[in-house]
């Protein structure tokens, strides 16, 4: 029992770290333009497909496929913002939200058209990475090298992001813009450019998550963005939407919660449990665990 729990805990951390990567995009975009970017899950899906194509069709090394997917989605995210959200910046928030849902439906249908409705398999890990090995930890717990890779890659990306946001000039401008949009403009910040940076970073992290999930589960599918997108969004709300540490923490917590449900024999209810957590958080603490109440004038 204990060993099963520990195994699922580690699975949960691996899964949760990918949720966290994706949740960051939701939270960063929301923090700046108060939009729930419903198309973000599809960017994650696109990242997975681009990574897969680069490995299988273009025979690129997995590291370059990973970076290529991030670059592709970075550009894709910026273009989506320019086409679908920027023209609606002065409209109601609902209009932008509907536009985001539209982009989401468009992208998953486009992927369906291009790649078909059947799941596409990722090449086996031993061909693109390494042979899966399992290491024994204490008390019967186990971790695979693939899990280590997933967790470490996510952690490195998140540490880089945190450093960028805290220390760099652009990072500071992003924080200023998310705290007070007009006043950031009064400081000389080109807020349109900051919005583009935000989409670029959030989308490339989603792509990273996409490739990691693709390798981890071995399959990618046109509609994979929907459920993972919802989960990552839940993670962002759980941590407090708009809060970057909140998204990281929320992702991990959700991943662990889901896998512990599996450990307790409730595996067919894992999605219900994830969304049950969302409803509970919204009821008890709508600002989330790390949420702050700052007055916003946009």
């Amino acid at each position: 029992m204990l060993s099963n729990l520990l195994v699922q805990l580690i699975n949960g951390i691996a899964l949760g770290s990918t949720y966290a990567l994706i949740a960051l995009g939701y939270t960063m975009v929301y923090g700046i333009i108060l939009l729930i970017n419903f198309a973000h899950g599809e960017i994650f899906m696109a990242g997975a497909f681009v990574g897969l194509m680069l490995v299988t069709v273009f025979k690129v090394h997995i590291i370059f496929a990973f970076l290529g997917a991030m670059l592709f989605c970075m550009i894709m995210g910026v273009i989506i913002e320019k086409i679908a959200y920027k023209p609606l910046r002065r409209s109601t928030r609902l209009a932008a939200l509907i536009s985001a849902i539209g982009v989401s439906i468009f992208l998953s249908n486009l992927a369906n058209l291009v790649f078909g409705a059947k799941p596409t398999t990722f090449p086996p890990t031993e061909e693109i990475l390494f042979k899966i090995q399992t290491y024994e930890l204490i008390a019967g717990a186990q971790i695979t090298n693939l899990q280590i890779l997933t967790i470490v890659t996510s952690a490195v990306l998140m540490v880089c992001l945190q450093y960028f946001i805290k220390k760099s000039r652009i990072g500071k401008a992003m924080r200023a813009t998310s705290q007070d949009y007009d006043t950031a403009a009064l400081m000389g910040v080109n807020v349109n450019r900051i919005i583009s940076y935000t989409f670029a970073i959030g989308s490339s992290l989603a792509a990273a998550g996409g490739v990691l999930v693709g390798i981890y589960f071995g399959v990618v599918k046109y509609n994979m963005g929907f459920m993972v997108g919802l989960k990552a969004f839940t993670a962002a709300v759980l941590g407090g939407i708009g809060s970057i540490p909140g998204a990281m923490f929320g992702g991990l917590l959700l991943g662990i919660g889901e896998m512990l449900a599996v450990a307790l024999g409730l595996s067919s209810y894992r999605d219900a449990i994830a969304f049950g957590i969302l409803i509970l958080v919204l009821l008890i603490k709508p600002t989330g665990l790390f949420g702050t109440q700052i007055q916003k004038k946009v």
């Binding site: 401008a173 924080r175 200023a176 705290q179 950031a184 910040v189």
Partner: peptide, 14 residues
């Protein structure tokens, strides 16, 4: 309209 979550120093840098 200071940036509430940024430090005094960061506000000046902005």
């Amino acid at each position: 309209r200071v940036f509430p979550l940024m430090t005094v120093l960061e506000n000046l840098e902005m």
